[in-house]
Amino acid sequence: MSAVENHSSVPERIFSAKLLPPAYASLMLGVFFLIPLGIMLAVSFFHRVEGAFYEPAFEFANYARFLDAFFIKILAFSIGLSISAAVIAVMIAFPFTYSLTRASRSTQVFALVFLLAVLSLSEVIIGFSWSTLLSRTAGISNLFAALGLLERSAAYYPSLPALLLGLVYLSFPYTVLVLYPALSRLDPELSEAAQMMGASPVRTFFTVVVPVMKRTIISTIILAFVFTLGAYILPQTLGKPPHWTLSVHITDQAIFEANLPFAAAMAILLLLVSLLMVAITLLMGKDDAAGGKA
């Protein structure tokens, strides 16, 4: 894994022109990503001033306010909702991705293009689409009514199941794309070996594929959890105000309550939760041993 050439043996000017591009990149990431996060951290300790934004201070009031039962409940609800959506998404996505990796290359390309398109679709559009699909006048209940399953069509949103459905939809393509590399590298001979030893396809799936991929599954759930934690539009379009998540409240505090210090404190907490989760997946190691070849 050594570099192309051994640079230490070649005498070079210290300020080489070659270092300009990485210096520019570091500067951009530093100024427009790290410094904003730093300022946000500072602001989270600032004192809020009604009418203006804030004044410099060092107080824990914003964090203390979070301990209020109301915000604790929001945090707990956000985490519970995101975990539920993540688990459901992975439960559907895992067998789906497994089947996909065993399908023909052209099916795979078709599905990947489609999933990438859905993944990149704005949350606004997904929220609008689902609210249409679940609406009274243009929704699926129309179909049920037409089939005689319902007496008359009804609106299924805003509601918690609608929100959960939307979040599963939102995180499904992401989940598939996270699982795809690991599953497509899974040695197909492992499943074939199990079948030669008498295991039916279903039994093979549960006694070989799932256990071999255990760590991948858990880290995918965590990544999907962090991903759904960022959902901002769906709780507002498909859920009711009690279903608003931390992401919604952060924006609400920042834009409509003009309370930047408190919004910053909540964002820092969200950041810590997310970093913790990402750190767990990194500690778990990258991939499962995908076959006997290693």
Binding site: E189, L190, M196, M197, P201, V212, G291, G292
Partner: peptide
């Protein structure tokens, strides 16, 4: 294949890592 009662050794060996 799972009802044929044959034994097979694979090229990658396909030993279950778990």
């Amino acid at each position: 294949s799972h009802k044929r009662d044959f034994g097979m050794v694979f090229q990658s060996l396909a030993l279950f890592p778990h």
